[in-house]
Design a protein around this nucleic acid. Sequence first.
RNA 1: GGGCGAUUAGCUCAGUGGUAGAGCGACUCGUUUACACCGAGUAGGCCGUAGGUUCAAUCCCUACAUCGCCCACCA
Length: 791
Amino acid sequence: MSIDSGKNTEGANKPYSPQEIEKEIYQLWEKSGFFAPDAPEAHQPETGNLPSSKLTNWKTDKLENSALGEAEGFCIIMPPPNANEALHLGHAVMFTIEDALIRYHRMKGDKTLWLPGADHAGFETQVVFEKKLEKEGKSRFDFDRETLYQMIWDYVQKNKHTMEEQARSLGASCDWSREKFTLDPQIVKIVYDTFKKLYDDGLVYRGKRVVNWCPKHQTGLSDLEVKYEEREDKLWYIKYPIADPSTSSGYKTSNLSPEQDDKVAASKAYIIVATTRPETMLGDTAIAVNPKDKRYKDLVGQKVKLPLTNREIPIIADSAVEVDFGTGAVKITPAHDQTDFEISQRHNLETLEVIGKNGKMTEIVPEPYRGLKTIEAREKVVADLSAQGFLEKEEPYKHTVGACYKCGRTIEPLAMEQWFIKIDPLAKKAVEAVKKGNVKFVTKKYEKIFLHWMKIIKDWNISRQIVWGIKIPVWYCGAAPSAAESAEASRSEAKADKCFVISDDKPDKCEKCGATEFEAETDTFDTWFSSGQWPFATLKASQPGDFEKFYPTSVMETGYDILFFWVARMIMLGIYCAGDVPFKYVYLHGLVRDKDKQKMSKSKGNVINPLAVIDEHGADALRMSLIFGTSAGNDIVVAEDKVVAQKRFANKIWNASKFVLDNISDTDNPDLHPDDTDKKFTKQDKWILKELKRTIKKVTQDIEKYKFHEAAQEAYHFFWHKFCDKTIEDVKIRISNNATDADAGRLVLWTVLRDSLKLLHPFMPFVTEAIYQKLPAKPKEMLMIEEWPTS
RNA sequence: GGGCGAUUAGCUCAGUGGUAGAGCGACUCGUUUACACCGAGUAGGCCGUAGGUUCAAUCCCUACAUCGCCCACCA
């Protein structure tokens, strides 16, 4: 890595080669210790050791003002990448923007902390790992909990290391000495404390609710983890005979369409319901109609006989039922439908679980259906209903069905005991904080989306039936069930209504019931429960004083796709646990798309590996291309063209610098002291110096306003098309003519180059630092800790 | 069904209450000793449509069209 000086022609015509210098430069930075906020040298001008060049006489007077002491804190908590796979371009965007911010603030003299981390990413990781097992012909159910956990642990440690190396190759100037992992003991302890606090405050409850059960992954999912797909299905109309037909004489049909009227008239002894899931009728515990529905007014309170079983179930009135849909009467299956469950709560209905966790019909259904898969049961139920004359009709029906966001398997709503967080009190505070401006969204539109979501938010199911994660610190009182019992029987039912103790470790005795034997909870926390505490948890687990100095952090920068999953939860939990918002600004970047605007995904095969791009074009080029022509919150299109364009820019910077350095270090030329030369500034010189000031001002303002793309473009345009195309070309002639104003020109070249390197450094740290290392006059050890120029 | 966006050059996208911008591409010149991963130029846009506010609208407002995203318990 050298900029060939002077007459050495060997390196001429050789393009800038980032591969040769980037690794070396990163090591220089990392070894220096300047990534940490507490490296005092980072904020002091270096007084000794300056090269003896005459150029050093002319150094910025701002150096003397570099006041130590009152430096402001600037802190970004890095969104911890999932430690389960290599980084993708979305991460590259995150690293680029955050690193640019961090480098800018570091140069401004702020005490700057960028705290890196890695996320165990519970369910995500387990899914990735299970796929790996599948490829090897195994299943997670082949292993006991401890073995499986250890296997995933080893797998994650390996990936975590890969991720860190990738971050380095992107130039991330984060403080690795403070890196945290979501499963670090200190972090886990904080998560436990939070859970306890929530419970003590009555904000955690255990309850039977309908959860989104994925039969493949055998776990419940939060509402956010369910994706809805449109399906062509059928709507079956089933006749439920009124238990005592004689009382149905008052049955009013006047509000029905003529067609419906006929049918009802022909079957007065029935009430007809429409359903997309006939198999669940075996678990029906009521029929519900809208209280305002005059057609059914007289039937409310009566009973119907459930076909295929001998059970009688009541007809109830509930306003959740839509009058206009279907027949206006709906079958209620509390155990397998969210709405039905809520209705059942209001009417104290029994909950019958007819579908098990394995997606098959349970033991409590009539014998012929037991053990059938739901889809088989559906066919049989329909056939039987039809044979017995209970099927009124079926019609095609298009509707949306919930599916697991990972495997696409249809979600099976099941009533289960789960841990929930009462979200309303937390959401209210979060909304207040945002409305008061304590948290500002850099892109306003996300504030609206956030507020809208907080309005409709529901209690948060934080239990997952997976092993990879932080175990919920609950101990159920009483002896552990035998192996046989626990193997098959559903854990949640066995534990329902049991007394329990919340404790990090196995307790000695339960204060409430006196139990001395305990069964440990096996559920783990939703990964977002722990990462939702990340800003304060990392700072508290970090070095003493970090929390006090850096909380609330300055900015949270992440993708908009995890606004609800993560950002909202951090705001809620941050306020609740740490007494203040976790960050002052939220900057949300968009999704990275390919040149055809397609979302990058493995299945489409259009994923670009950032490392491959770096290998080919350099990290600077990649970074710049991710910022150029983008804007906050909008999706980012990455095509190789763009990267190549920025690679050329890096080359341009390299070569222009080479020219400048070759010329200003020419000792045959007279003194470059400004006193002697500034009077000889040409009109052209004054123009570029003025443009420089203007550019510094613009770039600074743009970064302060989080308009990175504008800042980068401004710096780019200034350097290439003003400095290189105009000034260098102009001065080049003056120098070769040995004109009287040649030295003034040299001074201009030097001045503009030096400040340009600073302006470009946050975006293209490698090439700018490499050149800085070659400067004859180097007030600081490295560009990374140089003074940000002022206009 | 609700909510939120987008519509600007051939392509990908910035931007602004006052003569329209970049990158890539196209075309014409130029092998000038930092760089051909270059330079000098050129072409190309009623800034989605229709109204409104304004001295002035691509920008603000209202409809409409098209596209996209998010949210949602019509069985």
